[in-house]
Simulated scan of single mutants.
Amino acid sequence: MSRAFVFPGQGSQAVGMGRELAEAFEVARLTFEEVDDALNQRLSRLMFEGPEEDLLLTENAQPALMAVSVAAMRVLTSEGGVDFAKHAAFVAGHSLGEYSALCAAGAFTLSDTARLLKLRGQAMQKAVPVGKGAMAALLGADIEQAQSIAADAAQGEVCTVANDNSVGQVVISGATEAIDRAVVLAAERGLKRAVRLTVSAPFHCPLMQPAADAMAEALASVTISAPAVPLVANITAAPVSDPNEIRRLLVEQVTGMVRWRESVLFMKEQGVETLVEVGAGKVLAGLTKRIDKELSAVSIQGPADVESFLKTL
């Protein structure tokens, strides 16, 4: 059976995430301590105990989600001998999940990944003044419908597709007024629903250019190694292993569209049968079933998931 390991993005965070892993496995506890040390912050306490409003802050949610994913992956390696080269064809991650994927596959050190995501969260938050940007999920839309609505709603402002998650779930991002117009247009054109998202900034659109510039500078000084298996990149929905290419794509990803649906379909075309979501939540497993019913998906969050998965190897 061919599988790929995939890593969740923002929105999957919840108070308590990672706590069971830390209590059950020393390698997980040490992973969280390493992230705390890298950031000079008790991020693990925030993850385990809250408060939720602090965990939801982009600068905390991004490194926290990565920490849970990498801790779970290290548990799989230490407890079950999971080896990317032997047990996976690809890794992929949704938005910040690309950093988790690259760290898990050995392209980044854990400390560098934590610091990069802290900076990424801060830079994305600062890029657009509060209230000036928004995002909305167009439910029932395909990518072509979403692109048409975004283009017609723009009227000289930024309004683009941010995430092509699955058929029936496409997210748009841009200036607040343009997103408001798009929500109205979606209703007029008979879409099932258009939902404004509770987000702190308009991610994955050209308004994020200041954050992309900040990440370009930060990534230029970080060592990137070739990952153990290719990363299927958000921006291209194609495999990449070259460190310089990875660096370039991570910068482009800040302002570009997350081509998740295409990424999953590419992996299926390459013979992948199972996507293993590693980390908090089950968002990617749910999307997998919507993208292609022939693909199977499992989620690994806690000790019971680890035990169950290792029996399948």
Rank of each mutant, 00 (worst) to 15 (best):
Q145N: 01
S95Q: 09
T198I: 00
L102T: 10
L39C: 11
F84W: 04
H204I: 11
L102F: 10
G80W: 02
L197Y: 08
M135G: 03
A220G: 12
M124E: 14
K126R: 15
L102K: 06
L197N: 05
P210D: 10
N40A: 14
A280K: 07
A101D: 13
E20R: 14
F7E: 04
G140M: 04
R181I: 03
M17I: 13
P202W: 09
P243N: 07
G168I: 03
V75Y: 07
S148H: 09
V158R: 00
N163M: 09
E157N: 06
K268R: 15
R45C: 06
A211I: 09
L96V: 15
M66E: 08
E245R: 14
L250M: 15
G18M: 09
D36W: 05
E52R: 15
T236A: 14
I246A: 07
G133H: 04
A220L: 04
A71H: 05
A216C: 07
F108A: 10
A85W: 00
P230Q: 08
G93T: 11
L207D: 03
L295E: 13
A186H: 04
G133K: 07
L56N: 14
E26I: 06
S166L: 04
L30H: 06
A105H: 02
P230S: 11
V232S: 11
M267E: 11
A141Y: 01
S166I: 02
A92Q: 07
L110S: 07
A104N: 07
S95A: 12
A38R: 09
H94V: 11
V199A: 05
V183Y: 00
A154R: 06
K126S: 15
F48I: 06
G121T: 13
Q253C: 11
G80S: 10
F108S: 07
A228M: 02
G271H: 08
V91E: 12
L287Q: 13
L275A: 11
R45N: 06
A162T: 09
T274M: 12
V232L: 12
T77P: 00
F309A: 08
G93F: 13
A114V: 08
L110F: 02
A88F: 04
A186W: 05
S299E: 08
E144H: 05
T288F: 06
V130N: 00
M17Q: 09
V170D: 02
L265N: 03
Q145W: 01
V68F: 04
T31E: 08
A228N: 01
V264A: 14
E98R: 12
K311F: 00
L207R: 00
V15A: 09
P239E: 09
D213V: 11
T274Y: 01
V68R: 03
N40W: 01
V222A: 11
L139S: 00
L119E: 13
K282W: 03
